[in-house]
Design a protein around this nucleic acid. Structure first.
Length: 489
RNA sequence: GAGGGUGUAGCUCAGGUGGUAGAGCAACGGCCUUUUAAGCCGUGGGCCGAAGGUUCGAAUCCUUCCACCCUCACCA
């Protein structure tokens, strides 16, 4: 491996430290003792701690050094924040003071000293004792511009997190959002469960799976594309309210809103339906917003969005009529094709009525759905696991929630009629024979479970990554996933 | 998968029409005991993404490849 000039210099310092009998990677601090405080705790309790003039300790990574001859300022960072340190020759003693020459930005040290306020008013630790805790062999990216290169930020996420406070902020928020979801659902007697990631048969969504292989069972396996079928089996097992926050895997393209592995929440609640899921969704988002932002307004992509309930409810028909200016009720494939041509919309690969509607919706409607909007009543052809809508044989009781132009949630009144469910699966097989690429597999095991009796149930899926994008005002899914997929270099 | 763009020092970026590389930060050597993008004086650092080609001469022009970004297609 090629070493940069700066790394060679650091390796040299490391060698010299060892010659002096100082372990650059000690098990624990040699002189500082126990690390008692996080940096933010020192600042939060500054008045008390500084007035007592008691020695306190902390530890972290050196992120800045300013040498002034016989005194040195540093900034020390940990997860909670950063604090300024002052080293003075007459306080630390000459031997220890001179060792500062072997320290670099990026090194970890433990410090013990007294808190005081500098002339310019910054709360600072006057360091009495310090120990090197770990030497860094590479310089940290520049303090002023930070690490900007998106590729480096992803490949070296540790540097991004260390250097760019905004990045750290996003992932702290992400953790909080997931915690709030758990708090909300646990408070409503939902049971958190785990279902298999490795599955012999995949289902619950339209997607291409990743395949893998179990050696000793000599078995082809799929990484799950959705939790749906397993969670419904739990409903059938009379676990009335269940949810899972899980990674799903889809072997498809990557773009601003798609990563091959992504996190979703799926929940199922017996004895309710998609109306119940709408209310639950409204309350869940309101809960997250008020816990996270102390309010119901969020800025996303320079737009003010309110997650105050109730959200708008618009049928797919009405939404297309309103935003695309075309009445699809009673329309025909030919009319929709003409509309696409007139509006410079590329035609989908298969020219079925609903594929065309879906395309027009994606192009003309979705980008306009900025305020939270439930789009209701989807075609049965695209929803083989949802219950029929009374009075319309073409539609099912299903909604998708759009916010800020992003598809955030998908829910339906779950199909619990085993006869109908079997027919739907068979229809999927038929579509496959006709050349449809993505269809759902007939799952006998699941059907058998439904045949044992499944209560009326509402089901809801929420894309966690996109939800985090919404609440952190980020425009790419890669900004909210710690290690998005990249090619190996 | 298709089209467009980017790749120069550890980081952030400059380098009209080809003449063999520059800044700030970081680093190194000095001076400096309350600075904070510390300051001042001085120094080093680059196979200009990779491989070919055109040319007397390529960071610059051409070809291929690699990685990333944007748009589109597939999808949530």
């Amino acid at each position: 491996m090629e070493r940069s000039e700066q790394t060679l210099i650091r390796l040299e310092k490391l060698g010299k430290l060892r010659e002096l009998g100082i372990d650059p990677y000690p098990l624990r601090p040699a002189t500082v003792g126990e690390i008692e405080y996080k940096t933010q705790e020192l600042l939060d309790n500054f008045e008390d701690l500084s007035s007592e003039e008691k020695e306190v300790s902390t530890a972290g990574r050196i992120i800045a050094i300013r040498k002034h001859g016989k005194s040195v300022f540093m900034h020390l960072q940990d997860m909670t924040g950063k604090i300024q340190l002052l080293f003075r020759l007459n306080i630390t003693g000459e031997e220890k003071f001179n060792l500062i020459d072997y320290l670099d930005i990026g090194d970890y040290i433990g410090v013990r000293g007294i808190l005081f306020k500098t002339r310019t008013g910054e709360n600072t630790m006057d360091v009495h004792k310090w120990d090197l805790l770990a030497k860094s062999l590479h310089p940290l990216p520049e303090k002023w511009h930070g690490l900007k290169d998106i590729e480096l930020r992803i490949r070296k996420r540790y540097l991004d997190l260390s250097i760019n406070p905004e990045t750290r902020e996003i992932f702290i928020k992400r953790a909080k959002i997931i915690q709030f979801i758990r708090d909300f659902l646990n408070g409503r007697n939902f049971l958190e469960v785990e279902t298999p990631i490795l599955q012999a048969l995949y289902g619950g969504a339209f997607a291409t799976p990743f395949t893998t292989y179990h050696q000793t069972m000599d078995m082809e396996l799929f990484l799950r594309i959705a939790d749906e079928l397993y969670l419904k089996k739990l409903i059938i097992g009379d676990l009335d309210r269940v949810y899972e926050i899980s990674k799903n895997f889809r072997n498809e393209g990557i773009d601003r809103t798609h990563n091959p592995e992504f996190t979703s929440l799926e929940l199922y609640q017996a004895y309710t339906d998609y109306y119940g899921m709408m209310e639950l969704t409204e309350e869940l988002l309101g809960f997250i917003a008020s816990e996270l932002l102390c309010g119901l307004n969020v800025t996303f992509n320079e737009k003010e969005i309110s997650v105050e309930k109730p959200f708008q409810r618009v049928t797919m028909f009405d939404a297309v009529k309103e935003h695309a200016g075309i009445d699809i009720k009673g329309s025909s494939v030919e009319a929709l094709k003409k509309y696409c041509k007139d509006n410079e919309i590329e035609l989908p690969q298969r020219l079925s009525f609903w594929k065309l509607v879906e395309k027009i919706f994606d192009e003309k409607v979705q980008p306009n759905l900025i305020q939270p909007t439930f789009i209701l009543d989807y075609p049965i052809e695209l929803s083989p696991l949802a219950k029929r809508k009374p009075g319309d044989p073409e539609l099912v009781e299903r909604f998708e929630l759009f916010i800020g132009g992003l598809e955030i949630a998908n829910a339906f009144s779950e199909l619990n009629d085993p006869i109908d469910q079997r027919e739907r699966f068979e229809r999927q097989m038929e579509l496959r024979r006709e050349g449809e690429e993505e269809t759902q597999e007939l799952d006998e095991d699941f059907l058998l479970a439904v045949e044992h009796g499944m209560p009326p149930t509402g089901g809801l899926g929420i894309g966690i990554d996109r939800l985090v994008m919404l609440f952190t005002d980020t425009q790419s899914i890669r900004e909210v996933i710690l290690f998005p997929l990249t090619r190996s270099k």
